[in-house]
Protein backbone atom coordinates (compact mmCIF):
# COMPACT_ATOMS: atom_id res chain seq x y z
CA UNK A 1 0.00 0.00 0.00
CA UNK A 2 1.19 3.48 -0.77
CA UNK A 3 2.33 5.73 2.07
CA UNK A 4 0.43 8.72 0.69
CA UNK A 5 -3.16 8.59 -0.48
CA UNK A 6 -4.07 10.38 -3.71
CA UNK A 7 -5.34 13.52 -1.97
CA UNK A 8 -2.19 13.92 0.12
CA UNK A 9 -0.06 13.26 -2.97
CA UNK A 10 -1.80 16.10 -4.79
CA UNK A 11 -1.29 18.44 -1.85
CA UNK A 12 2.37 17.47 -1.62
CA UNK A 13 2.75 18.17 -5.30
CA UNK A 14 1.42 21.73 -5.00
CA UNK A 15 3.91 22.36 -2.20
CA UNK A 16 6.88 20.70 -3.88
CA UNK A 17 6.17 22.54 -7.16
CA UNK A 18 7.48 25.62 -5.36
CA UNK A 19 11.01 24.19 -5.05
CA UNK A 20 13.57 26.45 -6.70
CA UNK A 21 16.44 24.05 -7.20
CA UNK A 22 17.17 20.36 -6.77
CA UNK A 23 17.44 18.85 -3.30
CA UNK A 24 18.98 15.50 -2.43
CA UNK A 25 17.49 13.44 0.34
CA UNK A 26 20.22 11.26 1.80
CA UNK A 27 18.52 8.38 3.55
CA UNK A 28 20.28 6.10 6.01
CA UNK A 29 18.83 2.78 7.10
CA UNK A 30 19.95 -0.67 8.13
CA UNK A 31 18.63 -4.14 7.32
CA UNK A 32 18.17 -5.46 10.81
CA UNK A 33 16.98 -4.06 14.10
CA UNK A 34 15.22 -1.11 12.53
CA UNK A 35 11.46 -1.45 12.51
CA UNK A 36 10.74 1.84 10.78
CA UNK A 37 13.51 1.77 8.15
CA UNK A 38 11.38 -0.02 5.58
CA UNK A 39 8.57 2.56 5.88
CA UNK A 40 11.18 5.31 5.89
CA UNK A 41 12.57 4.06 2.61
CA UNK A 42 9.10 4.01 1.04
CA UNK A 43 8.42 7.47 2.46
CA UNK A 44 11.47 9.09 0.83
CA UNK A 45 11.00 7.19 -2.44
CA UNK A 46 7.38 8.28 -2.71
CA UNK A 47 8.28 11.89 -1.91
CA UNK A 48 10.92 11.77 -4.65
CA UNK A 49 8.40 10.33 -7.12
CA UNK A 50 6.25 13.45 -6.68
CA UNK A 51 8.90 15.97 -7.77
CA UNK A 52 11.61 15.89 -10.44
CA UNK A 53 13.66 18.20 -8.26
CA UNK A 54 14.05 15.63 -5.48
CA UNK A 55 16.84 13.06 -5.71
CA UNK A 56 17.38 10.27 -3.22
CA UNK A 57 20.55 8.50 -2.14
CA UNK A 58 20.21 5.38 -0.02
CA UNK A 59 22.97 4.29 2.34
CA UNK A 60 23.40 1.80 5.09
CA UNK A 61 24.45 3.10 8.45
CA UNK A 62 26.81 0.14 8.84
CA UNK A 63 28.21 -0.75 5.43
CA UNK A 64 28.47 2.80 4.07
CA UNK A 65 30.45 4.00 7.03
CA UNK A 66 32.27 6.66 5.01
CA UNK A 67 28.90 8.30 4.27
CA UNK A 68 27.51 7.99 7.79
CA UNK A 69 30.75 9.50 9.11
CA UNK A 70 30.64 12.28 6.54
CA UNK A 71 27.16 13.37 7.66
CA UNK A 72 27.65 12.43 11.31
CA UNK A 73 24.78 9.93 11.34
CA UNK A 74 24.62 7.72 14.43
CA UNK A 75 21.13 6.22 14.30
CA UNK A 76 18.51 5.18 11.76
CA UNK A 77 16.26 5.88 10.02
CA UNK A 78 17.89 9.22 9.25
CA UNK A 79 17.44 11.87 6.59
CA UNK A 80 19.96 14.55 5.66
CA UNK A 81 19.07 17.25 3.14
CA UNK A 82 21.63 18.42 0.57
CA UNK A 83 21.31 21.50 -1.62
CA UNK A 84 21.60 21.63 -5.43
CA UNK A 85 25.40 21.42 -5.26
CA UNK A 86 25.13 18.46 -2.88
CA UNK A 87 26.36 20.55 -0.01
CA UNK A 88 25.20 19.41 3.40
CA UNK A 89 22.52 21.77 4.73
CA UNK A 90 22.94 20.24 8.22
CA UNK A 91 19.16 19.84 8.45
CA UNK A 92 18.49 16.28 9.62
CA UNK A 93 15.49 14.16 10.54
CA UNK A 94 15.87 11.12 12.79
CA UNK A 95 12.73 9.01 12.42
CA UNK A 96 10.04 9.42 9.76
CA UNK A 97 8.58 12.93 9.71
CA UNK A 98 4.93 11.82 9.66
CA UNK A 99 1.94 13.36 11.43
CA UNK A 100 2.41 17.09 11.91
CA UNK A 101 6.13 16.81 11.09
CA UNK A 102 5.36 16.48 7.39
CA UNK A 103 5.12 20.27 7.59
CA UNK A 104 8.62 20.77 8.95
CA UNK A 105 9.91 18.28 6.40
CA UNK A 106 8.35 20.19 3.49
CA UNK A 107 9.44 23.53 4.96
CA UNK A 108 13.04 22.32 5.20
CA UNK A 109 12.99 20.85 1.68
CA UNK A 110 11.78 24.20 0.29
CA UNK A 111 14.44 26.01 2.29
CA UNK A 112 17.15 23.62 1.05
CA UNK A 113 15.93 24.21 -2.51
CA UNK A 114 16.76 27.89 -2.16
CA UNK A 115 13.31 29.31 -1.42
CA UNK A 116 14.31 32.21 0.73
CA UNK A 117 12.69 33.26 3.91
CA UNK A 118 12.95 36.86 5.06
CA UNK A 119 14.89 36.96 8.32
CA UNK A 120 14.74 40.23 10.29
CA UNK A 121 18.15 41.94 10.17
CA UNK A 122 18.95 41.88 13.91
CA UNK A 123 18.23 38.14 14.01
CA UNK A 124 20.31 37.50 10.90
CA UNK A 125 23.23 39.36 12.47
CA UNK A 126 23.05 37.17 15.58
CA UNK A 127 22.90 33.99 13.48
CA UNK A 128 25.93 35.07 11.46
CA UNK A 129 27.94 35.55 14.64
CA UNK A 130 27.67 31.92 15.78
CA UNK A 131 31.30 30.79 15.73
CA UNK A 132 31.29 27.56 17.73
CA UNK A 133 29.97 24.13 16.76
CA UNK A 134 26.31 23.94 17.79
CA UNK A 135 24.18 20.81 17.82
CA UNK A 136 20.44 21.36 18.20
CA UNK A 137 18.19 18.39 18.91
CA UNK A 138 14.45 18.95 18.75
CA UNK A 139 12.49 16.09 20.31
CA UNK A 140 8.98 15.71 18.89
CA UNK A 141 5.97 13.44 18.90
CA UNK A 142 4.01 13.14 15.68
CA UNK A 143 0.70 14.22 17.23
CA UNK A 144 2.10 17.54 18.40
CA UNK A 145 0.85 20.58 16.48
CA UNK A 146 3.48 23.01 17.85
CA UNK A 147 6.47 20.77 17.19
CA UNK A 148 7.08 21.57 13.49
CA UNK A 149 7.74 25.22 14.37
CA UNK A 150 10.40 24.16 16.87
CA UNK A 151 12.04 21.93 14.25
CA UNK A 152 11.95 24.62 11.55
CA UNK A 153 13.52 27.21 13.85
CA UNK A 154 16.44 24.84 14.50
CA UNK A 155 16.75 24.00 10.82
CA UNK A 156 16.77 27.67 9.84
CA UNK A 157 19.79 28.20 12.10
CA UNK A 158 21.54 25.21 10.52
CA UNK A 159 20.85 26.43 7.00
CA UNK A 160 22.06 29.95 7.77
CA UNK A 161 25.24 29.10 9.68
CA UNK A 162 27.57 26.23 8.87
CA UNK A 163 28.58 25.79 12.50
CA UNK A 164 25.07 24.63 13.34
CA UNK A 165 23.58 21.17 12.86
CA UNK A 166 19.92 20.68 13.72
CA UNK A 167 18.00 17.43 14.19
CA UNK A 168 14.40 16.48 14.50
CA UNK A 169 14.30 13.44 16.80
CA UNK A 170 11.05 11.47 16.70
CA UNK A 171 10.62 10.14 20.21
CA UNK A 172 8.60 6.98 19.58
CA UNK A 173 11.31 5.70 17.22
CA UNK A 174 14.15 6.80 19.51
CA UNK A 175 12.56 6.04 22.83
CA UNK A 176 15.96 5.42 24.45
CA UNK A 177 16.96 9.01 23.63
CA UNK A 178 13.67 10.32 25.00
CA UNK A 179 14.54 8.53 28.22
CA UNK A 180 18.18 9.64 28.21
CA UNK A 181 17.19 13.27 27.68
CA UNK A 182 14.30 12.93 30.11
CA UNK A 183 11.71 13.99 27.58
CA UNK A 184 8.17 13.93 28.90
CA UNK A 185 6.85 16.98 27.08
CA UNK A 186 7.39 18.10 23.49
CA UNK A 187 8.76 19.95 21.69
CA UNK A 188 11.89 19.76 23.80
CA UNK A 189 14.98 21.50 22.46
CA UNK A 190 18.44 20.43 23.62
CA UNK A 191 21.47 22.47 22.57
CA UNK A 192 24.94 20.91 22.82
CA UNK A 193 23.65 18.69 25.63
CA UNK A 194 24.02 21.75 27.82
CA UNK A 195 20.94 23.94 27.52
CA UNK A 196 17.35 22.85 27.06
CA UNK A 197 13.91 24.35 26.88
CA UNK A 198 10.38 23.13 26.34
CA UNK A 199 7.75 24.43 23.94
CA UNK A 200 7.86 26.08 20.54
CA UNK A 201 9.91 29.15 21.43
CA UNK A 202 10.86 31.99 19.09
CA UNK A 203 14.22 31.77 17.35
CA UNK A 204 15.62 34.31 19.81
CA UNK A 205 15.33 31.66 22.58
CA UNK A 206 17.67 29.39 20.56
CA UNK A 207 20.06 32.28 20.02
CA UNK A 208 20.00 33.22 23.72
CA UNK A 209 21.05 29.67 24.61
CA UNK A 210 23.67 29.47 21.84
CA UNK A 211 25.25 32.76 22.90
CA UNK A 212 25.71 31.37 26.42
CA UNK A 213 27.70 28.34 25.17
Amino acid sequence: MAIFDEKTRQQLKTVLDQMKNEVTIVFFSQEIECQTCRDGKRFVNEIASISDKILVEHYSLVTDKDKSDLYGIDKVPAIVLLDKDKNNTRMRFYGIPGGYEINSFLGSILAASGKEEAIPKPIKARIDKIGKPVHIQVFVSLGCPHCPNAVMAGHLLALENENVTADMVETSTFNHLAIRYNVSGVPKVVINDKYEFIGAQPITAYLDAIEKL
Binding site: S141, G143, C144, P145, H146, S184, G185, V186
Partner: peptide
Protein backbone atom coordinates in the same frame (compact mmCIF):
# COMPACT_ATOMS: atom_id res chain seq x y z
CA UNK B 1 7.94 20.53 36.59
CA UNK B 2 6.48 21.61 33.21
CA UNK B 3 7.88 19.16 30.68
CA UNK B 4 8.93 16.88 33.53
CA UNK B 5 5.54 15.33 34.09
CA UNK B 6 3.39 18.44 34.20
CA UNK B 7 1.69 18.82 30.82
CA UNK B 8 -1.07 20.79 29.14
CA UNK B 9 -1.33 19.09 25.72
CA UNK B 10 -2.52 15.48 25.84
CA UNK B 11 -2.27 14.82 22.10
CA UNK B 12 1.36 16.02 22.24
CA UNK B 13 2.58 14.32 25.37
CA UNK B 14 0.42 11.21 25.89
CA UNK B 15 3.08 9.00 24.20
CA UNK B 16 5.45 9.65 27.13
CA UNK B 17 3.05 8.08 29.60
Amino acid sequence: LIGHGVAYCAICDAPFF
